[in-house]
Amino acid sequence: MQSASSLDMQARAGKRSWTTLLGWAVAAGVLGWAWQGAEMAPGLLVSNAGNMATLAADFVPPTFGSLDHYIDQMLVTIQIAIWGTLLAVLFAIPFGLLSSDNLAPWWINQPVRRLMDACRAINELVFAMLFVVAVGLGPFAGTMALFVHTTGVLAKLFSEAVEATDAGPMEGVRVTGAGRLEEIIFGLIPQVLPLWISVSLYRFESNIRSATVLGMVGGGGIGVSLWETMRGFQYTETATIMLVIIVAVTLLDMASQRVRKRFI
């Protein structure tokens, strides 16, 4: 009996090491396959170092003649991010609740989830191009693009928070005779609010970064100048714009993190 079972265990251990080996082989295969597809060629970085140095030299010194204009454009970019994020938060709350399986039945939560998947799967830039056609060039198109994409992202994160909550407090509210909405407002929202605020602020930070390129496709903001100076080979201007972006993004990230910490 005993020797049989130890044999069995050995066999199982052998099987496990064999599957582990197969797992590593598959992982290595995927990495090699992706390396080829991405045409990875680190050698070029060395052999073409001269080209890069020449290009980099074109960026210095940054020219500050149009700095005021770029700062104005950066402010527009921030304004796009503010409204894009706010609208997304407002819409992500109902969509997030409806895609949570502890609140909505499958025939509601599945379609809503798929809709949110679609919003999330398509990049802001693609949405911006679509909205430019619909509402014309300018910041409004960019705002709408951020709004739609971010709604998809936040609805998923919001609903994950909802699904991780404790059902007890909601039952506690239900048995007082309160309605379903009161149950959500008093029993559920207080549980998820800190996390919701935190992920919303994080998305605001990342939307500022995204908004800096929306202008490239006509979505308004500093991306317009960024694209124009690059296409016009005015690299010293491009350098100034990049500096403005770096400073603004850093400052806002720091401010938002400070607010975020208060809620965690």
Partner: peptide, 17 residues
Amino acid sequence: RRRAGYIFQQFNLVGRL
């Protein structure tokens, strides 16, 4: 519904309120 109340073993209060 409010004419019947319920008390739970784990209290089921809303902790953050």
